[in-house]
Design a protein around this nucleic acid. Structure first.
Length: 476
DNA sequence: CGTGTATGTCATAGT
DNA sequence: ATACTATGACATACA
């Protein structure tokens, strides 16, 4: 067993730091943080390493080391501005894993300067982050309009997402699309409908196909083989669509008359002449925009979509005045559903059922009404779902930016700590040399740093220890 | 004509 | 069991 008493060299007091012979008291301005400091020929280097290890034992620094070593940064955000050097330190120094051997920072001015700038720098960092990402507190608390302030990254993210799903889509469309089309084709063939509805608006399972105006109800009410298709020629060309304008006008004026009784359209010509298509079309657009405004939850939406068709030969690019009614509305008209679409969709279920009891509806009508309700609710749900999705993307982007700013801040702190540590090491070296220079042996001669080293015990006492003894002790 | 976006619809799981 | 909601996937219109 090795004991301290065996190798402690009694020291004659040669300076004020020696309170008792053979021991140095903690009067020296050495911190206990460096209690493990020892000397092996080159005392500075070894002690520095120990001190360095202790400092790096700080959790935050370790974590930062890991984070830095991970190099997980994403390419799109590599363009962040370089870290702002702290005080008089250069960034190049921050990447030097080996502390400077020569203390160039051993002036109090430099040391103080290192921290005196911390607050301003933090402020600068914060401002920098806000400038980069627009994340002032006021903005954080305010609901962002999608695409407004993050249009580019949002679109990038969205595109990425859509592309991802699109890839999947492409694979599925080959199969699912084929099977669905086949399914539809069989359905329509079965029901004798030659007017294929090319989009997915056809209810495949929830209700039977119904009659269309083009294909007048081939069966009596309740006949399961009829279809409520509006006969919308989805698959026909624009020319063919325009050929249906006459029919559509009558059809929709009828829709206006009792689907939206509150928006009677005196401007609608029940018998539009082919010589006045433009004027009639314009009137229809305006009237329907008003009449249908209640149907669309999100008033900002255009009429685009698979179930709303532009039958009125709108000039290309003019989408500001949606001029179509939904397919379900036309279906409702064709089956003479005596309710407003808005009521069908938005009434509470009890009121809705009560409404149904007030009329005698055929199974076909009933099925259509329920499908209209389901589709209407689902449409709103889809709109909300997409809004949430966008907001979620925005939130994640914001979080990403905040984390990047935090990372940058931690990098700054790391630079600060490194330089502080370098300074402390230099200061420690100076103190060590100073203390050692004051020590004298019994003959009044100074101790050689090659033969002795100062060592501090955990209780703060300082000992002058021969190197040979220390080596033995290490072997114990 | 190909591509991206917006929207409606369906299917399905969960509430 | 029924109605409703949420969401992925698909289809379509449009720019």
């Amino acid at each position: 067993m090795c004991s301290t008493a065996n190798y402690v060299l009694p020291l004659r007091r040669t300076c004020e730091v020696l309170a008792t012979p053979g021991r140095l008291c903690g009067g020296v301005s050495m911190s206990n943080n460096f209690s493990g400091a020892r000397s092996h020929g080159a005392p500075q280097d070894t002690e520095m390493d120990v001190a360095w290890q202790e400092l790096m034992a700080i959790t935050e620094l370790q974590e930062f080391e890991v984070a830095t070593a991970g190099s997980y940064e994403t390419a799109p955000y590599q363009t962040m501005q370089p870290m702002v050097p702290m005080g008089g330190y250069e960034m190049a120094q921050s990447h030097s894993e080996t502390p400077p051997a020569v203390c160039e920072l051993s002036t109090a001015d430099t040391y103080n300067g290192c921290y005196s700038q911390e607050v301003p720098v933090r402020h600068r960092l914060s401002s920098h982050a806000e400038a980069m990402y627009g994340h002032s507190d006021s903005q954080r608390n305010q609901r962002m309009h999608p695409i407004a302030s993050h249009s580019q990254p949002l679109h990038v993210a969205l595109r990425a997402q859509m592309n991802m799903s699109g890839t999947n889509q492409g694979q599925r469309r080959a199969n699912a699309g084929l099977s669905q089309d086949l399914h539809r084709h069989m359905l329509w063939t079965t029901h004798g409908a030659d007017d294929l509805e090319s989009d997915s608006g056809l209810s495949l399972g929830s209700s039977p196909p119904l009659a269309s105006p083009d294909n007048p109800v081939s069966g009596a009410p309740g006949c399961k083989s009829v279809t409520y298709s509006d006969g919308e020629p989805d698959s026909m060309g624009e020319h063919a669509r325009r050929a249906h304008i006459h029919y559509s006008m009558d059809y929709q004026s009828q829709a206006q008359s009792y689907l939206h009784p509150g928006a009677q359209t005196s401007y609608i010509s029940n018998q539009p002449t082919s010589s006045q298509p433009s004027a009639v079309t314009l009137s229809m657009k305006q009237g329907q925009t008003t009449a249908l405004s209640n149907l669309h939850i999100d008033s900002g939406e255009s009429s685009r979509g698979s179930s709303q068709y532009n039958l009125y030969a709108q000039p290309q690019g003019s989408i500001s005045s949606p001029a179509s009614i939904s397919r379900d509305e036309r279906r409702a008209v064709s089956l003479k559903i005596p309710f407003q679409m808005e009521k069908i969709i938005n009434l509470p279920v009890d009121d809705f059922n009560e409404l149904l009891t007030q009329y005698t509806l055929t199974d076909t009508q009933l099925a259509l009404v329920r499908d209209i309700r389901r589709r209407g609710k689902n449409k709103v749900a889809a709109q909300n779902c997409r809004k949430r999705k966008l907001e979620s993307i925005i939130h994640l982007e914001r979080e990403l930016h905040q984390l990047q700013a935090q990372r940058e801040h931690l990098a700054q702190q790391r630079v600060e700590f490194k330089h502080s540590l370098a300074f402390i090491k230099c200061h420690l070296t100076d103190l060590y040399s100073e203390v050692f220079s004051h020590l004298r042996d019994e003959a009044g001669q100074p101790y050689s740093t090659d033969e002795y080293a100062l060592q501090q015990t955990p209780d703060g006492k300082m000992y002058l220890v021969p190197h040979a003894t220390m080596q033995k002790r290490e072997q114990c």
